[in-house]
Design a protein around this nucleic acid. Structure first.
Lengths: 344, 344
DNA sequence: CTGAAAGCGCTAACAT
DNA sequence: ATGTTAGCGCTTTCAG
């Protein structure tokens, strides 16, 4: 009876294994593997060869504990499913690329409680910094962020008091900006279509800004339609149909995001509405996606990629100002009139 | 001159701090914080109160090193920007929710080299398991996965030899399935529109399957159009226009993903093509998005969320079979004829 | 139920 | 340029 070849119980390799395999002290092996310059080329080669042959993968847990430094950046966003945050993440990844820092993503589903949990989990890994969407957090979450002793960058929104640094746009201003455009184009009866989510603070601020801005021109939101879940494109369609049926005299539809706006636009084009003549429309975010629609939906670009990049640069210490912490960056969102707002 | 209130140099709190604050040994504090049952309610309360007041966040680095266990699951996908992987991630998150395991996401941008790097980074944190998209990896990446000594689940694709477990669909079979549908509907001249990415192995397999399937009916792909980068919806439009101009006798357009398919569909509807009468169309993935289009694009559902859930369950040991490792799950993709393939 | 001792795998700091 | 020593903050194991 031959002993079947046993796939060795797989104790993960340690520095010591490499050290023994190449006859160099653990310390020097460690130096080589961390790309430190103070090792002779000869030893370096020997070590590298041994590490490669064995298939050694360093243990960052031990490394992190010993060095008290961890090359992780916690990134917390509400969602991945709506085209908007992935672009922020892409910006962060790109900016961190050559810094030795690694982003780690967490998702909250727009739930403050989930955010608190995810944050706790992530901070327990002692990351070098944290990037988190929004300025609204539970008290406990705020406390954790304040006490973490690492740079914190709150992103997307600049309407509020940041914990440390902030990179975003004013959603209230974006709402007002849209109100100005609507008023200038002479639309009179505005409908708002958005999400039901109580915790989408930014959408709420945009609506506030819109309402305020309209009020200054004696205008107001005359009907509202909210949704949650499902295909945003389809919901946009359905909500638009519902609103137009209920309030046929509406002449402008403001959507809280481009996706439902696109659904609404497709619906209106099919039904032969005169856009932008009799009916104006606008969304929010400036997703690339809009480029492929039959007509360019008006929108406000939320500078998502740029926000991601700047936040990452602050964490990485790549920002130019020389200031440490407490950066306040408010980007100016660009209004893109597209083809769905008539010229004044 | 008063000393400005200095925000104490913020040495992160340790178990010892909590221990001293509540007069209970570090060991017992540790027990409480890990929710172990063998602590008296009285001590438990004391400890919890102290931990909360201080705002203690455990150090998982130290914990992981001591216990040799880390509650992280490495998840590696090619991209976040195309609606498809976010849904896989959602499935994984949901399935891991109540397991104590935490997913950590990495993105490769469809680059084998990047995949290798991301994998190395992630494995160096000694996760409890890894979920990785696709069956094609560099030799080094394969070696790492094989030697990691943790459960590995390769997902999305089942055409090939997995390292450990696999959960996916056969993209080759999906291609053949579409070929059958096309042949059965009587289309004769097929055009293929897809991505230029050399490393999108699954799209390649679908094309192979399609080609083989068509060949069995004496049919073939008569024209091909590829793109990279940019708004997929817009590219779909442009490619469709180009192909239809170049090969006006084409009567079926097969897109390698739903997004470019949607762009093509919008274009064709605008131009008044007779769909599905004179021109058939189909995409791939079954993204929810399609629901909102004026006409339902035919597609094959790739079971993304389900794949994520099953993969996570395997890692979490929640799968039913009782088998340890080496699970092979091939899901059957559903062909959804929609409105863009004529009835036979 | 609670505590004391040992050590996880690595790196900082100090020799040499 | 290389080696030695002493922990990092927790959890395991074993004793009370």
């Amino acid at each position: 009876m031959t002993q079947p070849r046993q796939p060795e119980p797989r104790r993960p390799l340690t520095l010591r294994d490499v050290s023994e395999a190449c006859g160099v002290s653990e310390m020097t092996v460690s130096r080589v593997l961390r790309n430190r310059e103070d090792v002779s080329p000869a030893t370096r080669e020997k070590v590298l060869a041994a590490a490669r042959t064995l298939g050694y993968v360093p243990n960052k847990i031990a490394g992190g504990l010993a060095s008290q430094r961890v090359n992780l950046v916690a990134v917390i966003v509400p969602s991945l499913s709506n085209m908007v945050f992935p672009e922020v993440l892409a910006g962060i990844s790109a900016a961190l690329e050559d810094t030795g820092l690694q982003p780690v993503f967490g998702v909250t589903n727009y739930s403050a409680e989930k955010e608190e949990n995810v944050l706790y989990e992530m901070l327990s890994w002692r990351p070098s910094g944290a990037i988190i969407a929004g300025l609204e957090h539970t008290d406990a979450a705020r406390a954790m962020l304040e006490n973490a002793g690492i740079p914190i960058v709150e992103i997307m929104d600049s309407d509020g008091e940041p914990i440390d640094s902030v990179v975003g746009i004013s959603h209230r201003a974006a709402g007002r900006q849209m109100a100005e455009a609507i008023a200038a184009a002479g639309y009179k009866r505005i409908g708002f279509l958005g999400t039901k989510m109580a915790d989408d603070h930014r959408a709420k601020k945009r609506l506030q800004g819109l309402t305020e801005g309209l009020a200054e021109h004696g205008l107001e939101v005359v009907d509202t339609e909210l949704y949650s879940g499902g295909s945003a494109l389809k919901k946009g369609r359905e909500m638009t149909e519902a609103m137009l049926a209920r309030s046929p005299n509406i002449d402008f539809l403001y959507y809280s995001n481009d996706m439902i706006g696109a659904g609404g636009l497709l619906y209106c084009l099919e039904k032969g509405y005169d856009i932008p003549g009799k009916l104006g429309m606008a969304g929010f975010n400036g997703v690339e996606f809009l480029d492929g629609l039959p007509m360019r939906l008006a929108t406000i670009d939320a500078c998502r990629r740029e926000i991601g990049e700047m936040a990452a640069n602050i964490i990485a210490g790549k920002d130019t100002s020389g200031v440490i912490g407490g950066h306040r960056v408010e980007l100016t969102p660009r209004l893109e009139t597209g083809d769905t707002i008539r010229k004044a």
